[in-house]
Computed example of a mutant assay.
Amino acid sequence: MKNPFSDLFILDFTHVYSGPYCTMLLADLGARVVKIERPGSGDDTRHYLPFKNGESGYFAYLNRNKESLTLDLKSPEGKRIALELMKKSDVVIENFSAGTMDRLGLGYEAAKAVKDDIIYASISGFGQSGPLCHKAAYDIIAQAMGGLLRLTGFPDQPPVKVGVSIADANAGIHMAFCLMAALYQRDHTGAGQYIDVSMMDTTMSVLENFVMQYTLNGVVPERSGNEHSASAPFDMYETKDDYVAVATGNNTQFSRMQAAMGMDIMSDPRFAENTLRRKNYKELRPILAAWMKEHTTADIVALFDRAAVPVAPVLGIDELVNHPQIRARGMIETQHHPVLGDLEMPGFPAKFSTMQTPVRKAAPLLGEDTDAILSGVLGLDEKTIAALKEKHIVEQHEKG
Rank of each mutant, 00 (worst) to 15 (best):
H336L: 11
I300T: 03
R329Y: 00
G54A: 14
N274I: 12
E37F: 02
R256T: 01
P131S: 08
M212G: 12
H228P: 03
Q253E: 15
L303A: 14
P155R: 14
E319G: 14
D156H: 03
A169M: 11
G40P: 03
N250A: 01
H228S: 13
A169E: 09
I119M: 12
K115T: 02
K79N: 11
T14G: 01
K52S: 15
L365P: 00
L207M: 11
A247C: 08
N322T: 02
A191Y: 04
R150S: 12
M24S: 07
L26V: 01
L320V: 07
H397F: 09
V164H: 10
V206F: 11
E273C: 07
L85Q: 10
L315E: 07
A111D: 03
E395L: 01
I300H: 00
A289T: 04
S229G: 03
V321L: 14
I287D: 05
M263T: 06
I140R: 06
Y184I: 10
K115P: 04
F348Y: 14
D102G: 12
N209D: 09
G30P: 04
A142C: 14
A259Q: 14
I195Q: 07
V34W: 00
T239K: 13
M204S: 04
D139V: 14
F352A: 05
K112Q: 11
F9S: 13
D242C: 08
A182F: 00
K135E: 10
Q213K: 14
C133W: 01
E382I: 07
V311C: 13
Y120P: 06
G40W: 05
L284W: 08
R360Q: 13
F5P: 02
S18A: 15
H336M: 12
G105P: 09
T248P: 07
M199W: 08
N53Y: 06
F13V: 05
D264Y: 01
E84T: 01
L62T: 01
V164S: 13
R64M: 11
S75D: 05
L151M: 15
C178F: 08
S198R: 08
D235V: 03
S205I: 04
A232S: 14
I10Q: 00
G330H: 03
P269F: 04
A110V: 06
A247L: 07
E222L: 05
F348N: 02
D371S: 06
T203N: 02
A308E: 13
Y58M: 10
I36M: 10
V219Y: 10
L378F: 05
D318E: 15
L49H: 10
H15G: 09
D381A: 06
Y194S: 03
S6P: 01
L62W: 01
G172I: 11
A245V: 13
K293G: 09
Q157K: 15
M236F: 05
P286H: 12
P364M: 05
Y21T: 00
K282A: 12
V311H: 02
